[in-house]
Write a protein that binds this DNA or RNA. Sequence first.
DNA 1: TAGATAAACTGGTAATACCACTTATCTCCT
DNA 2: AGGAGATAAGTGGTATTACCAGTTTATCTA
Lengths: 237, 237
Amino acid sequence: MANGEKPASMILFEEMLDRIRTGQWPVGSRIPSERVLMAEFGHSRVTIREALSMLRALGILSISQGKASVVQKMDAKLLGRLFPLMLSLEGERTYQQIFEVRLSIESRTAYLAALNRTKQDIDELERVLAILKSHLAQNIEQSLESDLRFHIRIAKASGNPLFPLLLEALSGFVAYVQFLSCKGDQVRRERALHFHESIVQAIRDQDPERARVEMESHLRTSADRMLKSGLLKKNSQ
Amino acid sequence: MANGEKPASMILFEEMLDRIRTGQWPVGSRIPSERVLMAEFGHSRVTIREALSMLRALGILSISQGKASVVQKMDAKLLGRLFPLMLSLEGERTYQQIFEVRLSIESRTAYLAALNRTKQDIDELERVLAILKSHLAQNIEQSLESDLRFHIRIAKASGNPLFPLLLEALSGFVAYVQFLSCKGDQVRRERALHFHESIVQAIRDQDPERARVEMESHLRTSADRMLKSGLLKKNSQ
DNA sequence: TAGATAAACTGGTAATACCACTTATCTCCT
DNA sequence: AGGAGATAAGTGGTATTACCAGTTTATCTA
């Protein structure tokens, strides 16, 4: 016989999650202390703490000793952490696989961005582009981070919040590979910058088809470099 | 001053996760009892249980009273549960958003499936198609489930395991919407079936471009029906 | 009034006991 | 000897108590 009874800690977990969802516990606010929750929910402290641990595992709750626990913004960074974590449990992902997904998504984000971009989007993209340029000769980590921000900013300009979310989730994989592709090679980074500028130009001109083509060229060029480097089969995580 | 010290429960959580990752605790196996883990890790039962609760929250561990806890396969179904859960915390998702993501992904899976499909893929697709046909006049839930399976099977045929994973993750959203789109309208389901057959045919013929076009037509047609139904703005979750 | 001190919070861990449920074992009856 | 039921052992679930370790707040002192 299946045991349908859910443990109290599970119920509390869902109930607390619901409080966060409904705004009863707003993002950024400090939730009541464990002693208070004990009385409120009518359960012992261990049960309360187990429920809180679950929320913590999902990154929804920030808990640290001495301080009150605060509700975290459920942004894409969390997804970016959990996504690779989960995928790592069923086989390794290759760069080829990541690339294909990025291509399918980003060719679309570029297209939609050109269609839906606002003046504010353009300004933002220019800004990120400037940062990208300034980081060209600097350290690699910053340069890669800026590059990722650039692509995510385009996804944001698409008007569909799911796209930047997905990209951020995938970024848990791409980081290392991007690092390899740009490592110590300033010429490559300059070439990538040129592509970035072309993409922004197409988005500014509201030319979806050109934006798509430029984005695909950019990604394909990066992928080809990986191939030549013989690092294609390298696992990304 | 930031408190860099991680609580023991957190450390144990990561350590247990690592044991699962490395295969020390294989998927499907039963992990030691809490009393044993107490001795092994040298911590009290509450600490052990808090770590276990975190694994449970992620769906990695199946825990039920009386029975030993077993390591769960970290498949896409879990992602499908967690994904919408997380997204639900930052604004609602509309059908339009889901549709755009599906279009970007599935136009690519159809294309790749036509390129990389094996004979076994074709057989499987035929089988799913037959099931789909047999469910045409039957209850809606089964029909929708089969439809989802069909699309995921195509993604699988692409050869890139990330695609079916993403689709399954998105399915947490589409279910309700698909339900609406097909609800009580057998004519629509028959038309969808026709599209499905065309897609399979293109994949069988190894005609990537045609497969892509057919898939896009299929999805766009479904989306248009949603528009006409006035349900476009309806939240999917 | 400013700084140091102390009290009152917060979460983290441990130990113990008991309950609820499942599984394995044993015993007894046929 | 074999099967069915009772029994015992093992599992997770919860509660209680106590104390530790940080943080914040209030208080007192210089």
